[in-house]
């Protein structure tokens, strides 16, 4: 029996030397916080299941062209003869159109698969951009202090008091609508909360002895920030990143739903839901509203459960919201 087995058999909160039996005590070896966090995450069933769901969604997004080939339906192809009933209504789920068609006779399954690409792309890219800007600003504000901090902290305050969605749609409408502007808009209005968290962490770490030691050895500001401070604030950043991905995905879908995001005919979940809602056919054809909605919901739910798991793994004292 290894230490890992013993530890994995005990609840998280009771983890510690007391639970390690006499034969285990000899084998105790130092484990990095990373390894501890990873082991905790591995034991979290809900997080594992949500991770499998996320992997499945990613796979669907990657193999979207396979759906196209298998069904023979390109995502934007309109099948007015086979895809619509003689009355011009969408067709329900059948053998040819597995999840049915929309009001233009397009294959919903194929469009969902292609829509997953956009959701995931925006979710990941916008989140990383947001976190990168927020981390840099937070590091600079917390480390330099004084006037830099005052200016940046005020900027964060201002950004947090801006009516986000209103500004986002204004911005998206002034510029050419599209994927790039959606990502930029999400990053512009997202970085301030990351910066606030990072700044708070840096403020306390800045005073530690090892930072002083690095400074006395002649290390430059950026070196201290990136080599000495950043690794010590990385855990909250990672937690925030995982929880930010579903926020970005919903943000993109919302902008597209409001008509200032991804433009038709590109297959996009928010766009598909907006199409269905504005169409008169929806009262006879629930599927073309329900399937994209469910796809979006499953995706955000999976990311949120996984994010909660990551947070618990890095901070076992934190209250487990979902198990």
């Amino acid at each position: 029996m290894t230490v890992g087995d013993i530890v994995s058999a005990t609840p998280v909160s009771e983890e510690g030397p007391l639970n390690v039996g006499p034969e285990g005590a000899k084998k105790i070896e130092g484990r990095s916080p990373w390894r501890l966090a990873f082991e905790r995450l591995r034991r979290d069933k809900a997080a594992l299941i949500s991770m499998i769901v996320i992997v499945l969604i990613v796979v669907v997004a990657i193999i979207a062209p396979v759906f196209k080939h298998l069904t023979g339906h390109p995502p934007n192809q309109q099948y007015f003869d086979t895809g619509l009933t003689p009355d011009g209504l969408p067709r329900g789920p059948t053998g040819t159109f597995v999840l049915g068609t929309d009001d233009l006779g397009r294959d919903i399954l194929v469009r969902l698969a292609y829509g997953a690409r956009i959701s995931l792309l925006v979710g990941v890219v916008a989140t990383f951009l947001t976190v990168a800007i927020g981390t840099l600003v937070g590091l600079a504000a917390g480390y330099f202090g004084k006037i830099v901090d005052t200016v940046l902290a005020r900027l964060i305050d201002v950004m947090l008091s801006i009516p986000f969605l209103l500004f986002a749609i204004s911005l998206a409408s002034v510029f050419q609508t599209g994927l790039k502007i959606v990502i930029i808009v999400l990053a512009i209005f997202g970085w301030s909360s990351v910066a606030r968290i990072v700044r708070g962490q840096v403020l306390s770490i800045r005073e530690r002895e090892y930072v002083e030691a690095a400074r006395s050895m002649g290390a430059g500001s950026w070196r201290i920030m990136l080599i000495d401070i950043l690794p010590n604030v990385i855990a909250p950043i990672i937690v925030y990143t995982t929880l930010l991905i579903p926020v970005s995905i919903v943000g993109e879908a919302t902008l597209s739903f409001l008509g200032v995001g991804v433009q038709p005919p590109t297959a996009d979940w928010g766009q598909m839901i907006a199409d269905a809602q504005t169409s008169n056919a929806v009262e006879h054809a629930w599927w073309f509203l329900v399937f994209p909605s469910v796809a979006l919901l499953i995706t955000t739910l999976a990311f949120n459960i996984f994010g909660d798991g990551v947070r618990d793994a890095f901070d076992p004292r934190s209250d487990r919201v979902f198990r």
Partner: peptide, 24 residues
């Protein structure tokens, strides 16, 4: 339930409620 609704985009809940409680 909290996590479920926390993950629910506002417009998705809105359109689904309309579909269920108005259209259907």
């Amino acid at each position: 339930l909290a996590l479920f609704f926390y993950s629910m985009p506002t417009f998705v809940l809105g359109v689904l409620l309309l579909l269920l409680l108005f259209y259907q």
